[in-house]
């Protein structure tokens, strides 16, 4: 009887622990998640693993400098504005405006491919933001295509954002 009770208690503890683990795991798995060991009451840094796609259209150009803007969808939906220097390497800065604030950064990519579409791949760095993203920092990869006829861009970004 005592042994049966002990087994029931152990089983109950196991179930409780497993349940707790699942809840914690679910919280970690959801985005945004809290960075490990955040102290209650202090502003915890959030880490967001984001993948976004932006479809941008031509706004203006001067020399090799191109300004495009358009909609971004994915983990950070909103609008995106890109200043791009289309040299032998593509370099530029971007701003993603979301309902919670804006995220700014810069990136560089190597173009390749021939013909009407130029594809490119490179890296990006998030340098700051406004609103919820004032302390935004992060890095990731970017790739996409540049339409040489109408100067539109499709940019896919993937990476981690801490804010």
């Amino acid at each position: 009887m005592t042994q049966q009770l002990r087994r029931v208690r152990v089983a109950a503890i196991c179930i409780a622990l497993a349940g707790g683990y699942l809840i914690v795991a679910a919280q970690i798995g959801s985005a945004p998640a809290y960075a490990g060991g955040a102290v209650a009451g202090a502003r915890a840094a959030r880490v967001l693993n984001a993948t976004d796609t932006a479809h941008l259209h031509y706004v203006s150009a001067s020399g090799s400098l191109l300004l495009d803007e358009g909609k971004a969808s994915g983990a950070l939906p909103g609008s995106m504005r890109v200043h791009l220097n289309l040299g032998t390497t593509f370099t530029g800065s971007f701003t993603i405006s979301t309902s919670g604030g804006s995220i700014t950064g810069r990136g560089s990519a190597t173009p390749h491919g021939s013909g009407a579409y130029e594809s490119f791949a490179g890296t990006l760095t998030v340098t700051g933001g406004t609103g919820r993203y004032t302390r935004a920092r992060g890095h990731g990869k970017l790739y996409g295509t540049f339409n040489r006829s109408n100067y539109s861009l499709v940019i896919k970004t993937t990476g981690s954002l801490t804010y």
Binding site: S62, G63, S64, L65, L86, G87, S114, S149
Partner: peptide
């Protein structure tokens, strides 16, 4: 020079 819009020239759309 820098800032010449060669990529925006619409030239070389085929190879």
């Amino acid at each position: 020079p820098p800032n010449l819009g060669i990529a925006l020239s619409g030239l070389g759309l085929a190879v």
